[in-house]
Design a protein around this nucleic acid. Structure first.
Length: 475
RNA sequence: GGCCCCAUCGUCUAAUGGUUAGGACACCGGGUUUUCAUCCCGGCAACCGGGGUUCGAAUCCCCGUGGGGUCACCA
C-alpha cells in the first residue's frame, strides 16, 4: 500500500471526547501502517467558539493515547504553519483565484436578509438554497462581506473508502461561504486548501460531513485540483443509542479516562473495536496487531453505541496481561493515602494480589486500603454474611480464639498458613464458608479481599493477630 | 419537509447466496475448599416488515418502516 498522509484536524473548541478521538486513531493507523505521515492541524477559524487551552488539551489527549504526529501545530513541518489562523494570506490568495475565475462573489445581503430567505424556505417546507437568491450584480469583494462560492450544481456519484458508492443530486449543492466577513475562511474552504497544500492523501472524518461532500466535489472542480481519498466514519452514538455522542449528552473527556486509570492501549483497543473488526473472532488487539490488520474497507457503515461496560472489561483484560513490574509503574499515584509510607516491595506484593480484580486504577484504594491500615470494625460484615449470620456469637468468638492460636503458631509463609488453616478446618469440623469468612473479615474488615492465605501472608503476623484481637473484643 | 446515510442478540459484532445464524460484553446459573475477582462449563438472547430474483436469501433488487445526519458568516 502506498504511504498515506493523513491528518487529524480538530477545532479547539473544547476537550476531546471519545467520539472524536476515534477519527484520529483511524487516521493514525492508516498513516503508520503504510509508512506515511500523520499530521496534526488545528482548525481555529471560529474565534467566537474557541476555548482557551483546548489546543493543548487535544495535544495532551493524543499524547496520552500514544498517537504521535510527524508534522503539526506544536512541531511544525514542511507545509506549515499548521494552525489555520496563521494561514490567512493563503486562504485569501486562493479565494482571489476563485474570484478572478468568476467562481466566487461577494454576498450583498445582510444576515437578516439571508435569515429571511431561510425562514421563507422553511415555511414552504423546502430546503434552503442560497443560490436561489444569487445576486445578478454582486459588489466587488473587499473582505467586508462574506465571499460565496459560485457553484455549478450537478449530480455526483463518488467513492468513499468506508461507505462505498455515494450519490447526490444537484439540490445538494449550494453557494456556500468560503470567507467570512471577519477575514477567516470557513471549514468548507480552508480544509480543502490545506489538505491540498499539505499533500494529504486521505480525508478521514465523521459522518456529519457526508452531505457537504457534493459541495466539496464541486469546489475541487472549480479549483481544478485532484481530490484525496474520502473516508467517512459512522458516528459513535451515546449510550441511549439515539444521537451521536456529544459533550452535551455527557460524553466524557478522553483525559477523564486517563485520570480514572484506564490504559491507553485498552482505550485504543476499545475505540478500534467500535466500528471495525478484522473479520475473525478476535476481540483483544494490541496496537501492533491493529497496525497489521486495520483497513478502512472493514470499517462498519452503521453507527456504534459507546458501551462503557465493554471498555471496563477490556481495560481489566489489558491490566491482567501486564507484567507486574510494568503494572506497578503504570499504577503510579493511584495508591490510597495510607500507602504513603509503604515500601515498593510491599506495594508490589499487594498489587500482585489485586491485579486480576482491578478494572481501572481508580479502584485501587478501595481494593487495597486494608493492606496499609487497620480499617474500623464493621459489624455489618459478620452480621449480614450469608454463612456467619447463622452462627451464634459465642461460637464465632470461640472459633476466632482458636484461629488466633493457630495463626500465632504459624511462620506466615503461604504453605504453612494453608496447611494450618486446613488443619483447623478439620479440628473444628467447620465449613470453610464459616471459618475462612470469619478469619478473612476479622483480618481485613473489608467486604472483599484476595485469597485468605495470600492476604494473611502479605499482611504479616503482627497485623493479623492485632486485628483478630480487635474483633474479639467487639464480639 | 427536501436531500443523504444506515438497519443481525440489550450492547459491540461475524456471516460476502447454502451455518442448528458464530463470538465477545452485560445478565443468569454451576464449578475452582470463604468473599470479590480470575479461569472453566452452561443458559438467556438477533437476521425491522412486505414483496420480488433464485433450486436456495441475513446476504441481491424494489417498496415500506425505523433510526441517524444535513439544509450556519460551526466544524
Amino acid at each position: 500500500m502506498k504511504p498515506a498522509r493523513t491528518r487529524f484536524a480538530p477545532s479547539p473548541t473544547g476537550y476531546m471526547h471519545v467520539g472524536g478521538v476515534r477519527t484520529a486513531l483511524f487516521a493514525w493507523l492508516l498513516a503508520r501502517q503504510t509508512g506515511g505521515q500523520f499530521i496534526l492541524r488545528l482548525e481555529d477559524t471560529d474565534k467566537a467558539r474557541e476555548v482557551v487551552g483546548s489546543g493543548q488539551h487535544i495535544i495532551d489527549s493524543l499524547h496520552w493515547l500514544g498517537l504521535d504526529w510527524d508534522e503539526g501545530v506544536d512541531i511544525g513541518g514542511p507545509y506549515g504553519p499548521y494552525l489555520q489562523s496563521k494561514r490567512l494570506p493563503t486562504y485569501k490568495a486562493w479565494a482571489e483565484k476563485l474570484v478572478a475565475a468568476g467562481r466566487a462573489y461577494a454576498d450583498p445581503y445582510t444576515p437578516e436578509e439571508v435569515q429571511a430567505f431561510r425562514e421563507q424556505a422553511q415555511a414552504a417546507k423546502q430546503p434552503f438554497l442560497y443560490r436561489n437568491h444569487r445576486p445578478e450584480h454582486p459588489p466587488v469583494w473587499d473582505g467586508s462581506r462574506p465571499l460565496r462560492f459560485k457553484s455549478d450544481p450537478k449530480a455526483y456519484t463518488w467513492h468513499d473508502a468506508v461507505m462505498g458508492e455515494l450519490h447526490a443530486g444537484p439540490e445538494a449543492i449550494d453557494d456556500f461561504i468560503l470567507m467570512k466577513s471577519d477575514g477567516y475562511p470557513t471549514y468548507n474552504f480552508a480544509h480543502i486548501v490545506d489538505d491540498l497544500l499539505m499533500h494529504c492523501t486521505h480525508i478521514i472524518r465523521a459522518q456529519e460531513f457526508i452531505s457537504s461532500v457534493p459541495n466539496y466535489l464541486n469546489l475541487y472542480e472549480a479549483l481544478e485540483i485532484e481530490r484525496p481519498v474520502l473516508a467517512t466514519l459512522p458516528h459513535i452514538l451515546g449510550p441511549d443509542g439515539k444521537k451521536k455522542l456529544s459533550k452535551r449528552d455527557g460524553a466524557k473527556d478522553l483525559l477523564d479516562y486517563a485520570h480514572e486509570g484506564f490504559l491507553p492501549e485498552a482505550m485504543i483497543n476499545f475505540l478500534a473495536s467500535m466500528g471495525w473488526n478484522d473479520g475473525t473472532e478476535q476481540e483483544i488487539f494490541s496496537v501492533a496487531e491493529l497496525l497489521q490488520t486495520f483497513s478502512l474497507e472493514r470499517v462498519q457503515k452503521a453507527g456504534a453505541r459507546f458501551d462503557e461496560q465493554r471498555l471496563i472489561w477490556m481495560n481489566g483484560y489489558h491490566i491482567r496481561e501486564l507484567p507486574l513490574d510494568e503494572l506497578y509503574t503504570k499504577v503510579g499515584s493511584f495508591w490510597p493515602p495510607e500507602a504513603k509510607n509503604a515500601t515498593d516491595e510491599y506495594k508490589k506484593q499487594v498489587l500482585a494480589l489485586v491485579q486480576e480484580r482491578l478494572k481501572y486504577f481508580a479502584e485501587l484504594p478501595a481494593l487495597t486500603a486494608f493492606f496499609f491500615a487497620d480499617l474500623p470494625l464493621n459489624p455489618k460484615l459478620w452480621q449480614t454474611n450469608k454463612q456467619l449470620k447463622k452462627v451464634e456469637q459465642h461460637e464465632l468468638n470461640a472459633l476466632l480464639e482458636q484461629a488466633k492460636i493457630t495463626l500465632a503458631a504459624s511462620d506466615f509463609s503461604n504453605e504453612d498458613l494453608t496447611k494450618r488453616l486446613n488443619n483447623l478446618l478439620e479440628q473444628t469440623s467447620q465449613k470453610p464458608g464459616v471459618l475462612f469468612s470469619l478469619i478473612r473479615i476479622a483480618t481485613t474488615q473489608a467486604p472483599a479481599s484476595p485469597g485468605l492465605a495470600d492476604t494473611l501472608q502479605v499482611l504479616g503476623k503482627d497485623t493479623a493477630l492485632r486485628r483478630i484481637d480487635a474483633m474479639l473484643a467487639a464480639l
